[in-house]
Computed example of a mutant assay.
Amino acid sequence: MEKNEYALDYTLQAEYNLLRKQFIPGIIVIPSGKSNLIWNGVHFISQGPYEGGVFRFIIIIPNTFPDNDSPQVLFTSSVYHPQINPHTGELDIKRYFPVWKRNVHHLWQVLRYIRRIFQKIETINAVNSDAAHLYDHDPGAFLLKVSECVNQSKDNLYIPDSSTIDDPHAIIFTPWNERLQTVREHLLAGTKQAFDNIHGLSWMKPGVYQILAREDTLPSHQN
């Protein structure tokens, strides 16, 4: 790794540490397992016209960071919004960060901006002119379009995002499992009951190099 790459890596670690200290409700973000220049994120919206929406996005950070260009924000979920390009999913980040300034602008501010666009909808110089027109002139039709993309985001919640499917740090959701929740509660309480109904093989048979091969470690009522 070259000297400037070390500097970039250190800067990104510092940015992520700053982000962790901020309180930004409804947003989860984690650096990609493939590149520290890509951060995976999800925004859960709890109020306003987009209430109930679960929108995935990625932040693409330029390799010149924190100088020159602003990061890109691409929504991988379909979002009907005046400031989000309907074809590419790109948020108009230049609207708020026309010039990225070292030691002034930070990535946590980008997340705050993402949250803000769903709370205060602006239609001037919109990148989605259709959404802007409906918001200003036909609010009912606008809300119907928004409802469609919110419902789509919830329907797709458990479907892996194709853009991050091979990323070890992809944010993945699975359906609620009551049994696992019960185990979690027992683990937090420190009780033995957490494992009473979980059985399996453990250790290894002598001379066998396969893990979990000794059947005599099963509970007695399972033998």
Score class of each variant (00 low, 15 high):
residue 123 T to M: 04
residue 76 T to Q: 07
residue 94 K to H: 15
residue 123 T to P: 12
residue 219 P to K: 09
residue 10 Y to Q: 10
residue 215 E to P: 13
residue 12 L to R: 06
residue 131 A to R: 08
residue 168 P to M: 00
residue 138 D to F: 00
residue 220 S to D: 15
residue 136 D to M: 13
residue 170 A to Q: 07
residue 111 L to V: 08
residue 7 A to V: 13
residue 150 V to H: 01
residue 105 H to T: 10
residue 213 A to D: 06
residue 162 S to N: 13
residue 83 Q to E: 12
residue 24 I to P: 02
residue 74 L to E: 06
residue 100 W to T: 09
residue 45 I to P: 01
residue 168 P to V: 00
residue 60 I to A: 00
residue 207 G to W: 03
residue 108 W to H: 14
residue 12 L to M: 05
residue 108 W to Y: 12
residue 75 F to S: 03
residue 19 L to Q: 07
residue 11 T to A: 09
residue 193 Q to E: 15
residue 185 E to Q: 14
residue 147 S to P: 01
residue 168 P to I: 00
residue 37 L to H: 10
residue 36 N to Y: 10
residue 19 L to M: 11
residue 66 P to G: 05
residue 187 L to T: 08
residue 209 Y to T: 09
residue 38 I to P: 04
residue 3 K to D: 14
residue 154 K to M: 13
residue 126 A to I: 11
residue 101 K to V: 15
residue 175 P to F: 00
residue 101 K to Y: 08
residue 158 Y to R: 04
residue 54 V to C: 09
residue 71 P to H: 06
residue 140 G to L: 04
residue 69 D to C: 01
residue 8 L to H: 09
residue 215 E to Y: 13
residue 12 L to C: 02
residue 92 D to T: 05
residue 83 Q to S: 11
residue 155 D to L: 12
residue 204 M to W: 11
residue 5 E to V: 09
residue 182 T to D: 12
residue 83 Q to N: 14
residue 222 Q to T: 12
residue 42 V to R: 00
residue 162 S to P: 08
residue 79 V to R: 03
residue 201 L to E: 05
residue 153 S to M: 02
residue 183 V to Q: 08
residue 197 N to Q: 11
residue 118 F to W: 12
residue 165 I to K: 02
residue 37 L to N: 14
residue 101 K to D: 01
residue 136 D to T: 13
residue 53 G to Q: 00
residue 166 D to V: 00
residue 136 D to W: 02
residue 190 G to T: 10
residue 93 I to D: 02
residue 177 N to A: 04
residue 4 N to M: 07
residue 180 L to E: 15
residue 28 I to Q: 10
residue 104 V to I: 15
residue 61 I to V: 08
residue 119 Q to I: 06
residue 176 W to N: 14
residue 135 Y to F: 13
residue 186 H to R: 08
residue 88 T to V: 06
residue 182 T to Y: 01
residue 211 I to E: 04
residue 214 R to M: 08
residue 99 V to W: 09
residue 216 D to I: 08
residue 65 F to V: 04
residue 37 L to P: 11
residue 42 V to P: 01
residue 144 L to C: 05
residue 13 Q to P: 03
residue 9 D to W: 03
residue 152 Q to L: 08
residue 64 T to P: 06
residue 147 S to W: 01
residue 190 G to L: 07
residue 115 R to S: 14
residue 73 V to K: 04
residue 10 Y to W: 01
residue 194 A to T: 04
residue 4 N to C: 03
residue 19 L to Y: 08
residue 134 L to C: 01
residue 21 K to A: 03
residue 84 I to K: 05
residue 17 N to P: 01
residue 51 E to I: 05
residue 94 K to Y: 15
residue 107 L to A: 03
residue 90 E to H: 14
residue 93 I to T: 07
residue 93 I to E: 04
residue 113 Y to W: 12
residue 98 P to D: 11
residue 147 S to M: 04
residue 91 L to M: 13
residue 27 I to G: 00
residue 149 C to H: 11
residue 98 P to W: 06
residue 111 L to S: 07
residue 37 L to T: 12
residue 188 L to G: 10
residue 78 S to V: 11
residue 59 I to E: 03
residue 97 F to M: 10
residue 116 R to C: 03
residue 11 T to V: 07
residue 52 G to I: 04
residue 59 I to P: 02
residue 109 Q to N: 12
